[in-house]
């Protein structure tokens, strides 16, 4: 069903969920239209928190536990799951852990397929985050795909990156690798009921000391809610501190660059799909693409 721009704008301004849901679909399907719509809406800065970590570490569950204890806040959740590289299909199952909040008026949970984007996010992530700010949420939680060590794109999108580690995630060499472990603003050791958790905590402390990094570590249990309130308090505190220090403004400025990069990459992909490459060599393909780009200016 086609919905006009003015219907969506009026609806989102009035806080209507259905209009907002349509706006999110437009973010996914037509980024040009989405950016146009968003630019016509008033935004309010929300704390964008990325939740990342390997599959099964408890990303959905911890977001659910945070929602359980945040009923007076307005929160958006962006849950991303992988698309099949073969069929393009996707099974979006993150919501299962959060379904008890499906009818909460203050929360808006939305599933996204990665649709070929690398790094654990969806191609429309920038538009989607902006859209949530037009819906006047206090915070947005992004759950990355969770393929693990290379899920680092989130650092270009989120104001705060929370890396989840589980007691069954391997030895300390895993923790010394580059990538995921470097991008954390907060570490969370989930599944605190597992006896290995305490050992993991001291290993992680040692490693951070070696790196001379002062990253807070939280021990949580999403099922009992243990440690969740501490985490929420620390997130809120960090948001006010980066807001005051100007770090948030800096991050947002960087995000504009990353957003532009993502739009340009998409354009190049589109061009590459339309250029007949079968007769061309490496140099010629690049020239064709450049010609197309310059023609589009």
């Amino acid at each position: 069903m086609q919905v006009s721009d003015s219907q969506i704008l009026d609806g989102v301004r009035a806080g209507d969920r259905k209009s907002f849901a349509k706006l999110l679909s437009i973010c996914e399907d037509d980024s040009v239209r989405a950016n146009h719509l968003i630019s016509n809406l008033e935004k309010r800065t929300a704390h964008v928190v990325g939740i990342t970590g390997s599959p099964g570490v408890g990303k959905s569950s911890i977001i659910n536990a945070i929602l359980d204890k945040s009923i007076d806040k307005k929160i958006g959740v962006i849950a991303i799951d992988p698309s099949s590289p073969f069929t393009g299909g996707s099974l979006l199952g993150d919501r299962i852990r959060m379904q008890s909040h499906a009818t909460s008026k203050n929360f808006f949970i939305r599933s996204f397929a990665s649709r070929g984007a690398l790094g654990g996010l969806s191609p429309s992530i920038f538009e989607t985050c902006d859209a949530f700010e037009t819906f006047k949420v206090d915070a947005v939680f992004i759950e990355t795909v969770g393929v693990g060590q290379s899920d680092v794109e989130i650092v270009n999108v989120a104001d705060t990156v929370v890396v989840l580690i589980s007691p069954d995630g391997g030895d300390e060499v895993q923790m010394m690798k580059a990538g995921l472990m470097e991008i954390a603003d907060f570490f969370v050791i989930n599944k605190a009921d597992n006896p290995i958790s305490k050992g993991l905590l001291s290993k992680l402390r040692n490693i951070l000391e070696m790196w001379k990094k002062d990253v807070p570590i939280f021990l949580t249990n999403s099922i009992t809610g243990e440690g969740i309130e501490n985490l929420i308090k620390a997130l809120d505190k960090r948001f006010s501190s980066i807001l005051e220090s100007g770090m948030l403004a800096q991050k947002r400025q960087k995000r504009v660059t990353s957003h532009a990069q993502s739009i340009l990459r998409k354009k190049i992909d589109d061009i590459l799909q339309n250029v007949k490459t079968d007769q061309l060599d490496l140099e010629e393909i690049q020239k064709e693409v450049m010609k197309e780009i310059c023609g589009n200016l």
Binding site: S83, S84, T87, G88, G89, S90, L91, L92, G93, R95, I96, Q99, A102, S111, A113
Partner: peptide, 14 residues
């Protein structure tokens, strides 16, 4: 699963 393999985006809520 079948709809996923047919190229659809499927939300499963349990």
């Amino acid at each position: 699963r079948a709809l996923r393999d047919a190229g659809m985006e499927v939300i499963y809520t349990g």
